[in-house]
Structure formats: C-alpha cells, structure tokens
Write a protein that binds this DNA or RNA. Sequence first.
DNA 1: TAGATTGTTAATCGATTAACAATC
DNA 2: TAGATTGTTAATCGATTAACAATC
Lengths: 219, 219
Amino acid sequence: MSVVVPGGPRRVPRATVGRLPVYLRALAALADQGVAVTSSRTLAAAAGVGSAQLRKDLSYLPAHGTPGVGYDVASLRQQLTGALGLTCQRRVVIVGVGHLGHALASYSGFAGTDFVVVGLVDADPRVVATTVAGLEVQPFERLAQVVKENGATIAVIATPQAVAQEVCDVVVAAGVTGVLNFAPRALRVPPAVDLRVVDLGSELQILAFHDRRRSDLSG
Amino acid sequence: MSVVVPGGPRRVPRATVGRLPVYLRALAALADQGVAVTSSRTLAAAAGVGSAQLRKDLSYLPAHGTPGVGYDVASLRQQLTGALGLTCQRRVVIVGVGHLGHALASYSGFAGTDFVVVGLVDADPRVVATTVAGLEVQPFERLAQVVKENGATIAVIATPQAVAQEVCDVVVAAGVTGVLNFAPRALRVPPAVDLRVVDLGSELQILAFHDRRRSDLSG
DNA sequence: TAGATTGTTAATCGATTAACAATC
DNA sequence: TAGATTGTTAATCGATTAACAATC
C-alpha cells in the first residue's frame, strides 16, 4: 500500500534522521519568537550544524525554501513534523520503574504532545501497584497485556541489564516496533524492529577518554 | 610530556572510541563467567558488533591477541581500561537535580568505581540544601566553587533548556574538560572541551520516524 | 603439522563539506 | 536589476566490511 511518487521521496540517511528532531526544536523556538521566515544559515546555527548540512538534510524531504529568501518557519515545521511521523500520537510503555524509569515517566520531553506514556511495568513487588506520574505500576507478568491493550508501539527498557533481553523479547513479541534501551547490555531484536540505545555509563567513559589525553602522564 | 612510541599509538577514530566502553563491559561479563581467553568472534557477538570491526578497533590500541588462539581477557581488559583513562577516578558534578538529575546521581553506572559524583547543584530553593544520594545540594551561585573545590573534570547538565548554556559557560570557565548535556538545546563549548549529548526527546522522535513508515498511509 | 584466529589491506559504503549555477 | 539564498553537484573524508597472508 505504499505510494511511490515519480522522482519522489528518496531514502533518508540515518544520520539525517538523527538531526531532524534538532531542526524541529530549533524551528519551534524561532516560531515562539515570532520569526516567520528563516535562512539555512540562521536555522543551522540554532541547531548547531553547518548550513550546507542543513540544506543537504532538507533535500531528502519534500520541503522547499525560496532562493534568495529562505524557509517559511511554519510550513517547514509542518514538513518536519510529518516526516517524523508526529502527526499521530505514539504510545509508550516504560519497563523498569527505578530512579531512571521514574524520571523518564515524568519527563516532559517524553510525555509531551507527540508521545504518551500508557503503561509502567516493574518486577519489584514494592513498586508494583504504586502510582507514578498518574499511572499504576503493573507487574512484569502483565507486560505483554499492557503493550497490547494500550496499543503501544514503543517500549522503553530501564531495567537492570540481567533482565533486559527477556523484557525486550516480550515487548517485541507483543508487537512494539521500536525499543529504546537504557540497560547496559547489547540487545538483539528482529530486523523489523528499530532499536536505539542510550548508554549513560559509556557516555562518561567516552568523556574520560578525551580527558585522559590532557591530564594523564602515563603512556 | 607525551611519549611517542615509534610506530606507536595512532589516532583512535571517534566511532571506535564510542565502542570501547561496550567492549570493556562485555569483557567484564566474560571475566565474571571465569573465561580467560576469548576470540574476536565471541567478544564481538557479546558486544553486538562484527568480528572484523572489533579487530579493526583493537588495532588502534597497543592491545594484541594471539593468532590461532584469541585474546587474554584480563590483559585486554587492562588495555581498554588504560586506553579509556579509567586508571584514575574522574570527578563529576551534576547540575540540575530534578527527576533526571536525581536519577543520575543515584545511577550505579555513574557513581561506580570509575566515576564519583562530587557535587550536586540546583537553582530551586526547595531543592537546595536537601540531601540526594548522600550529597547536600548546593545553590547555583556556588557552582563554579563546587567544580573547583572538588577538582571536577566532568559536568552533567540536567537543567531546563533555558539555563543550559549559562550553566555550561560557568562549568567550562571553572575548568571542566568534558560536558554531558541532557538539556534539549544545542550548546556551544570551546574546542578544547569535549561535549556529548543525550537527547531523550529526539530518541523517541527517531523511533517514531521508523514507526511511521509502517503504520502511516499518508504520502 | 593441521586447524584456528589474528592483524591488516583494499574495496565499499555512507556522511560531510565547499562551491556554485539556478532562482527569487 | 542587484543582492541574497537555495538545491545540488562533486570532492573529500571517515567508517565499515570482506578477504587473506601471517602467525601461533
């Protein structure tokens, strides 16, 4: 049922997809300031990239600016919103309601207009049945049910690493198409499922790598 | 005072640096299982990458395996620990003690043996002077002092986006060499400062992009 | 020795950047 | 028109991958 427009939408490179949310945010800020038209130079600066890269990225979308003038903020915003699939709300289940899961459930960037947290699941009996961010935490046994009943398409894994793969298998079997993993362990998912990883410990170690080159005297 | 070994350490590519922590973690798991020697095939599988990529990555380090045998787990672990600069503990200051900052302060991946959280700072008078993860939260005015007094080299920014750049400027002026930004805003830092970004909202939007291609019928 | 696995090479692939003709 | 800015091309750069000679 896919519609192929002649000479139409090219495949959007992975690196470009990763920057679209940043552009969208910068556009929202400009719109809030009452800016109606902007240039690739201005928008790129706000997003922290080069103007050539911004124009290249936009060239993969049906978005178009006006040579000599720039881009209409409102319509470019709509284009990006559509490209990112934010026209309908995505439903998210968070598995693991420890400190991190708790924070994510309450995070405004997570529970905004584009995404809604529809389920919280934890294995700890002390956490189950408590209310977090307006939702009652469900036991692990109900995970598949929670995903299906609420039609969640995205699962956030914020559990200990030991159970992360098991959790992942359950949510994938239950039908989610995207997994965001915070557990410090490599997860296997079927090719059709999109997996993103946020590895907080690694981020610090990467910073330590660069720090090392300055402060360390040991060869 | 840098020691240049003839034919010695090449520049380690950015992408490789990003994978070293993952290898280190996989090695730790193997060591816990009592494995003494491993192959690039096994280790790569545990880390979720290809074996060719693992060997290529290790080729930038002075690490060496034995053809026909594999790698000694203990010594490869030491090599990676050294390469990442984890031989001495790095001191971390967390700015912004909301839900996320609170979670990070308590996160074991953050406050492990390699890193120690030495300061918590917040602007909210209701949060200042409370104790979180064993530390008293300091007021924003004391930020520069907290960084300097404790010799922090890494700052974690978990504040609202509106104040993130100001916080960043203060910690950089106070002498940190690495910044980990959780605020949804592009930050400017001097070239000598290493900046890493964790953009939680963007991660969900990127998942939505791929989800869109499945569920959306709109061209 | 025979079998296994490394370290490296060379080919491929994808991403970035600068430059500029086309356009308003 | 003159000045400005887009969209695209081509060149560069960096990362990945497969293959294999060297080595144990």
